[in-house]
Design a binder for these strands. Structure first.
Length: 1000
RNA sequence: GCCGGGAUGGCGGAAUUGGUAGACGCGUUGGACUUAAAAUCCAAUAGUAUUUAUACUGUGGGAGUUCGAUUCUCCCUCCCGGCACCA
């Protein structure tokens, strides 16, 4: 071999040229072979150029595609550019360079970079979403949606910066301020286009089951669609009639119509139609007694962004519509109406019936405003509160009956046993007695321990092993005492109580397992401290750990404060679960699920399904996107641009500087147009489409990219699609991936496609982090430039390294030293084969190499199928390490190694193939098959355990029978050491793995 | 707060899905070659004790199931990603 050293610079460009010249990777529309369509999410050609993350998914797919090609499939592996988008436009605003120019420049750069990595793309199918030849069909897609009623216009909010006079994308809003000028962002209503993705919710949900996608992605889409079943109910407004004398109703959606008897008020979103119209009409407006307050609340809400409004931590605000009442349709009771921003206009009807007893949000609101709380569902699970108090000498006596009374009002079952003095030796007997009582109680169990009742409570839980949902401990402590002092007091035995308590010996982990929620109240006291209760709590990590310092209260005042807090704590949650109906007239006693339908029927509501998913807003008040093909005519109204007039081209004579209007309006030539219907002068829609529209169908265009009479021909689309394997980031779960499914399903319904899912198999690649384990970013200075890596180590090295780093779907840090190992591996391949050639291909006489070759082929083949590329590479490394030792092998095995290496490192494989075989290209060879008979082991090493601990290893013939294996195992010196004079209870033999001898 | 993913030597990771934990690679240490360095090659490399043999500890922490747990169950801690009051 001429070149002794592996010089990637000499070979990589050479083979890239050969592949391109011979059109090796062009997909064949006419082949009879089975097709395989592999795809990665196409890149946005950003100014920064290729990132090391790009080659990761590209290499992974390239390996699969090259492998499938060698397996005999007709491959389609296309590439293109998601070329519309904000950065190019921002650059135009700053630098005055038209987006088309920057984009073209970036594509040129990306192309060069991607080509230098040697991927097997079919460049003849390259697409560019910003090219008129492409966006003509994006517009055509819009028209299909429009024709079928899936594209419509309505008002929606946009982020508006008053000082820049421009609409801002969500990512341009930082802290509710404009990223450019730092002034406050307002919400502004604009007429905007939507795609009715909500019409496909059921189909989108149903389709998920069939897909070979990562489960988290499927789940995420399911949650995103957010299906929930409930009822539509109508609430009448009291003493209010429309002009036509009809009564006024407000409709609400609820998932819990069963709770309607507990609906003690209504809440409307501030944007609700009823509120808006009420404030518009003068004589009705005057009905509202607190109109100024109401109007102020509404304007305040408008200033808030969605994010501020939906901050869960904030207290619930609202304002009553004084003077207007609603009627609860179940019991005809008058109830107040509130406006509050915790109700969103975008979900359901923008109005709710509030049931504070059974909805946590309503509950919190009701507490703030002192509204009535009526429980209408009783927990099927009984709630029992056991109050364990301290010695009789303590002054709490009066509080226990009070607390018992209050809790019973709330539906709790309360037990306050008459405690013996905890210093009393009878305690144990007493606990046993209590245990009997408790055994008969089922349901939720709450224990309150007070003072010396604390240790009793803990002991009780531990001894009885009952599951306690909540444990409250109210323990007195001295404000001046610290932990150490407490301990000292204890050790000196100064306090008898402490000593007694300590002797109980609690097991923190056991208690932790038995108790779901632990709350600890500590308060001032100068008597004694159940010391190890406190210490125990350090291990238990109580959920609510309250130190109280209430000043100079006397004891009973202090107790009152504690018990009020406790009561509040115990009843601070709404009961949201199932149960039996109460306070609901004739429905009382039914279980709530049965009542749900009956009540809905009785009050004339209808069961309905709601979805969280909203329609897809596709309008962008931007230049660098696909123009929406609509014309507005004074005569004919909204007119779709006829298909023959497509594409509606993006004009070049526009001003990019923000003016407050879509940039397209500044182009006269674009804006003013004749109406296609009546010929009168009209104006064009000046908004462009969300770039996600472009990427929702690009995978379809690859089937027939140069067709200029249709987006794709029937023959080709149904030949190539759907995509067999798709690789891309998981961040697109609820965006691109959902939109593409929607498009495919819609086009299937329109009759253009014979399939209704675009991507059969999906895999996500993880993120490549910087060496510091942080996301790569310019500001952190941890960005790795792939060009530099390619220049230094070669494309093959970066490809193999990125696959070797770890599992594809994991995120993992880059390691500059780690890549050296991969480079060494390729150098070894080069060297060992070069040497073998120089020595006239010496053959191996033993079978060892042969076996390893076949094992490796098997491992690599199976690993590619399951995308475990890191272990496939490791297997090849093992083989090559062995080869450098043996140095003699058969021609067929060397060829086999090169073939399995080819998908990973195609350039070096091609170069060595030329030298070893001399015929054809390696990427067009057949994938090698392993011979199972050559892999079979004759002997196997098995482990010998005694009681599950490894004591010896022996090598046995593979088919040795069990009895002989046991005999051998028991005969090992190190085994005898442990089994001598011991009774063997059990012997376990796991074939070809281990023996476990169980002794007494 | 909710949903999802994760935690294994100094580092990236492997482990046939309940069966010998640490494959492979990086790094480190020692040795060979060299005037020397780099490169390359060889050997060692989870920790502790020890003369090897071996023993003990060890897969974020705590419990449990099992002859046997990185793997299954429960509880907890921390990290990463997504979502935001969905009635």
């Amino acid at each position: 071999m001429a070149e002794k050293y592996y010089d990637h610079k000499k070979i990589e460009f050479k083979w890239q040229n050969v592949w391109e010249k011979e059109k090796v990777f062009e997909a064949d529309d006419n082949s009879a072979k089975k097709k395989f369509y592999g795809l990665t999410m196409f890149p946005y050609p950003s100014g920064q150029g290729l990132h090391v993350g790009h080659p990761e998914s590209y290499t992974a797919l390239d390996i699969i595609v090259r492998y499938m090609k060698m397996k005999g499939y007709n491959i389609m592996n296309p590439i293109g550019w998601d070329a519309f988008g904000l950065p190019a436009e921002n650059y135009a605003i700053q630098q005055g360079v038209p987006p088309r120019e920057t984009t073209q420049e970036n594509i040129k750069n990306f192309t060069k970079q991607i080509k230098s990595l040697g991927f097997s793309y079919d460049w003849s199918r390259e697409i560019n979403t910003s090219a008129p030849e492409y966006y003509k069909w994006t517009q055509w897609m819009f028209l299909q949606m429009y024709k079928h009623g899936l594209a419509y216009k309505k008002k929606a909010k946009v982020n508006w910066c008053e000082s820049c006079k421009t609409v801002l994308a969500n990512e341009q809003v930082i802290d509710n301020k404009c990223e450019r000028c730092d002034s406050e962002v307002l919400q502004k209503d604009l007429e905007q286009w939507f795609f009715k993705i909500t019409a496909y919710v059921e189909k989108l949900l149903a389709g998920l089951d069939q897909l070979d996608w990562p489960e988290p992605i499927k789940l995420s889409q399911k949650n995103w669609i957010g299906k929930s079943e409930g009822a539509m109910l109508r609430f009448k407004i009291k003493d209010l009639r429309l002009k036509n004398k009809k009564e006024v109703y407000i409709e609400v959606f609820t998932t819990r119509p069963d709770t309607i008897y507990g609906a003690t008020y209504m809440v409307l979103a501030p944007e609700h139609d009823f509120v808006v119209s009420l404030l518009k009409i003068k004589n009705q407006k005057s009905k509202i007694k607190n109109i100024a307050e109401v109007e102020k609340y509404i304007t305040d809400t408008k200033k808030k962004t969605e994010l501020q409004r939906t901050d869960l931590a904030k207290e619930k605000t609202g304002v009553e519509l004084k003077g207007v009442k609603a009627i609860n349709p179940a019991n005809q009771k008058e109830i107040p109406i509130y406006i509050a921003d915790y109700v969103m206009m975008t979900y359901g009807t923008g109005a709710i019936m509030a049931v504070p007893a059974h909805d946590q949000r309503d509950f919190e609101f009701a507490k703030n405003f002192g509204l009535e709380i009526i429980p209408v569902i009783k927990s099927e699970k009984q709630k029992t509160v056991l109050i364990l108090h301290g010695t009789e000498g303590h002054s709490k006596k009066n509080w226990y009956p009070w607390l018992k009374d209050e809790l019973e009002k709330q539906g709790f079952n309360v037990i306050v046993p008459n405690m013996p003095d905890s210093r009393n030796p009878q305690l144990r007997l007493w606990l046993k007695h209590l245990q009997k009582i408790i055994k008969e109680i089922s349901g939720e169990f709450i224990i309150i321990g007070h003072s010396l009742g604390c240790p009793t409570a803990l002991q009780f839980i531990q001894n009885n092993k009952i599951n306690v949902s909540k444990l409250y401990l109210i323990a007195p402590t001295h404000s001046k005492m610290d932990w150490q002092q407490i301990e000292e007091t204890h050790e000196k035995g100064q306090c008898e109580c402490i000593k007694k308590v300590t002797n109980a010996g609690y097991d923190a982990s056991q208690i932790n397992q038995l108790v779901k929620e632990i709350h600890l109240y500590l308060s001032e006291d100068d008597t004694y401290i159940p010391f190890n209760v406190l210490k125990l709590f350090q291990d238990l990590k109580p959920i609510n750990h309250l130190y109280k310092n209430k000043g100079h209260f006397n004891k009973s005042t202090r107790d009152m404060v504690e018990f009020l807090d406790l009561l509040d704590e115990l009843t601070k949650q709404a009961y949201e679960a199932e149960g039996k109906m109460i306070n609901s007239d004739k429905f009382d006693g039914l279980d709530n699920k049965t009542a749900m339908k009956k009540i809905t029927k009785k009050i004339g509501g209808k069961m309905q399904t709601q979805y969280r998913l909203r329609d897809w807003l596709i309008s962008r008040q931007r230049y660098w996107g696909t123009p929406i093909p609509i014309i507005y005519c004074a005569q004919c109204g909204e007119v779709a641009v006829p298909e023959k007039d497509l594409p509606v081209k993006l004009p070049e004579d526009v001003d990019f500087k923000p003016t407050g209007e879509s940039p397209l309006k500044s182009s006269k030539e674009f804006h003013r147009v004749k109406c296609p219907k009546c010929g009168q002068s009209a104006r064009r829609e000046s908004d462009t489409m969300d770039t996600f529209v472009c990427s929702s169908w690009y995978y379809l265009r690859y089937a027939n990219p140069n067709n200029d009479s249709e987006p794709f021909s029937q023959k080709l689309i149904n030949k190539w699609l759907p995509v067999d394997t798709y690789i891309g980031g998981a961040e697109h779960a609820n965006g691109h991936l959902l939109f593409s499914r929607f498009f495919t399903k819609a086009l299937n319904d329109f009759g253009y496609l014979q399939f209704d899912e675009p991507f059969l198999k999906l895999r996500n690649q993880g993120m490549i982090l910087g060496e510091d384990n942080q996301k790569m970013s310019k500001s952190k200075g941890n960005v790795i430039n792939p060009d530099e890596v390619i220049a230094e180590y070669g494309a093959d090295t970066i490809r193999v390294y990125e696959m070797f780093m770890g599992p594809l779907e994991d995120s993992k840090p880059w390691s500059t030293s780690g890549i050296i190992g991969v480079r060494r591996f390729l150098e070894k391949v080069w060297l060992v084969i070069g040497e073998w050639l120089d020595n006239n291909k010496p053959e191996d006489s033993s079978n060892d190499m042969e076996k390893l070759f076949h094992q490796t082929i098997k491992k690599v083949t199976l690993d590619i199928e399951t995308m475990k590329f890191n272990t496939a590479i490791s297997a090849m490394m093992i083989l090559v390490n062995q080869m450098t030792k043996i140095k003699k092998f058969k021609q067929v095995n060397v060829e086999g190694l090169l073939k399995i290496l080819d998908p990973f490192a195609p350039h070096i494989s091609e170069e060595l193939w030329e030298k070893v075989s001399g015929t054809g290209l390696i990427c067009q060879q057949e994938w090698p098959v392993w011979d199972e008979t050559k892999i079979v082991e004759e002997e196997v090493e098995i482990a010998i355990q005694v009681n599950g601990r490894l004591r010896a290893k022996i090598i046995i013939p593979i088919d040795l029978d069990e009895e002989k294996v046991f005999a051998l195992a028991l005969d090992q010196n190190n085994v005898k050491k442990f089994t001598d004079n011991k009774e063997v209870i059990k012997k376990i033999y796991i074939s070809k793995r281990l023996v476990n001898i169980v002794i007494k």
